[in-house]
Design a protein around this nucleic acid. Structure first.
Length: 201
DNA sequence: TGCATGATGTTCT
DNA sequence: GAACATCATGCAC
């Protein structure tokens, strides 16, 4: 396994950090066991300059973690039933985060499957931001967690670096503002990338 | 294969 | 009161 990504990795703009996270491993360890996901799809969100970001209108109780130091987890609850997880980026005082949109379960498949209500095929276990959070067992109690501590319950490890021509950039999914910004990054043709998925070929 | 829709609660206007 | 960084299902083709 690769080494745990240091805080300095996250202390850069979200659109720089995001593509470098592709191929990295997110690991959650709880009393239930360990689940690891290799990231195949992420999205960058900036702060007050990005109208699609939750942090656009300045800090609120919900978003203040995004304005804090990098390397922590921003978890939010949406559509009345789903949790989504972000990694906080940029320097302390500057809002930025990378939304974890999808990945491939590489360890703890049984536990990940047990956490998902439905019975999806393996490729869909962590495909989509709410599904990924669910597979890792992430919810509001993880909000603000430090992901740079090797002893913490949540870690991100450097994986095999993605080749530049494997990475696809496109518009972000599910947003109605700043749709022209190509800050969604995914691994070309990977079956775990959530729709709309670029077709291979 | 693809679109329309219901579930369900927090946040902000 | 409306919007929301979603998902699974059901039905049409």
């Amino acid at each position: 396994m690769g080494r745990v990504l240091p805080r300095s990795f996250y202390a850069r703009p979200a659109d720089v950090v995001a593509p470098e996270l592709l191929g990295c491993i997110v690991e959650s360890e709880t009393p239930e066991g360990l689940v690891a996901v290799r990231l195949t799809e992420v999205e960058a969100y900036a702060g007050e300059d990005d109208p699609a970001s939750h942090a656009w209108r300045g800090p609120t109780p919900r978003t203040e973690v995004m304005f804090g130091p990098p390397g922590r987890l921003y978890v939010y609850f949406t559509y009345g039933m789903h949790w989504c997880a972000n990694l906080v980026c940029a320097s302390d005082g500057v809002a930025a985060a990378v939304l974890l949109r999808g990945g491939e379960v590489v360890a703890g498949e049984g536990l990940a499957r047990a956490r998902r209500g439905a019975r999806p095929p393996v490729r869909r276990l962590a495909s989509g931001p709410a599904n990924l959070a669910s597979a890792l067992g992430l919810d509001g109690s993880w909000h603000g967690s430090d992901v740079t501590a090797a002893s913490g319950g949540l870690r991100v490890r450097r994986g095999r670096a993605a080749d530049a021509d494997e990475v696809i950039a496109g518009p972000r999914v599910g947003v109605t503002r700043a749709v022209d910004v190509a800050w969604r990054f995914s691994l070309h043709g990977d079956p775990t990338v959530s729709p709309p998925r670029p077709r291979a070929g």
